[in-house]
């Protein structure tokens, strides 16, 4: 475990250093270039692109998760029970929409840039959280619910103090999936001119410069792996705390 923590810190440090001062790493990427191509992407600062990337994904994932949790709570209460079968079908079919298609179809309504990427992220981030919250809330041990009812808890108290805490690890797992998908979708967002790290990869693909592709891909992959790892630790901590 200690080795894992060390490795994580080292990766984080390397990532931060690279994003802040990419020129220092020119020697790493120079072997990938041909015919005097630049080794480091300089059209836009990598740090700005990375911060944009993280900001878009963080905002979309938090809004999407909040909406998804609220919807899942709604359809598992008696008020919204009519919508349960339909919402399951929508979540199931919704996941068959490729993120690229959602992205491209949002362009005519919102124009090029960050807005369509944000909407695609939001819609796409909803589904995993919704499904997991639904699974968490509908598979609660029956005796726990009965005990809560017997102890005189109101409907609200039961939801907030019993049901949601028990479903929390699954919900966090859903948020993690949604976050990972979001980081990937934001990367593809550069095809519709969103200002994210995907821009670096796209520049590499267009100019046939392998160095750009590799540095963009490494930066995005590290961000995705580090943030997913962090949420996995939260999940483990929640499960651990429960027992």
């Amino acid at each position: 475990m200690r080795w894992g923590a060390f490795l994580r810190l080292a990766c984080l440090a390397a990532l931060c250093l690279f994003l802040a001062e990419p020129e220092r790493f020119g020697f790493v990427f120079a072997p990938f270039t041909r015919d005097g191509q630049p080794a480091i992407y300089v059209q836009n600062a990598l740090l700005t692109l990375a911060l944009n990337h993280i900001a878009i994904v963080a905002l979309a994932t938090s809004i999407g998760s909040a909406v998804a949790i609220a919807l899942a709570v709604l359809v598992t209460r008696p008020v919204g029970a009519d919508f349960l079968p339909l919402s399951r079908t929508i979540a199931n079919i919704g996941q068959t929409f490729p993120p690229v298609a959602v992205l491209a179809l949002a362009v005519p309504m919102l124009g090029f840039g960050t807005a369509p990427t944000f909407v695609a992220l939001l819609l796409y981030g909803l589904l995993p959280v919704f499904e997991n919250t639904l699974a968490g809330l509908s598979n609660l041990p029956p005796d726990v619910d009965e005990a809560a009812r017997a102890s005189g808890m109101t409907e609200w108290q039961r939801l907030l103090e019993v049901d949601l805490p028990l479903a929390a690890p699954l919900i966090v797992a859903g948020v993690r999936v949604s976050l990972v998908i979001g980081i990937g979708t934001a990367t593809i967002g550069s095809t519709v001119a969103a200002s994210t790290l995907g821009e670096v990869i796209m520049a590499g693909l267009i100019n046939d410069n392998l160095a750009f592709i590799v540095q963009g891909a490494l930066a995005v992959a590290l961000i995705a792996i580090l943030s997913s790892e962090q949420l996995m630790r939260v999940e483990r901590w929640m499960i651990h705390r429960r027992t």
């Binding site: 990938f32 963009g216 891909a217 490494l218 992959a221």
Partner: peptide, 18 residues
């Protein structure tokens, strides 16, 4: 395999080109 899953598709395609 879980780590592979977290790498965004376009990044993985890019990394595999080399």
């Amino acid at each position: 395999l879980t780590a592979v899953q977290t790498i965004p598709s376009i990044a993985l395609f890019g990394l595999l080109i080399a």
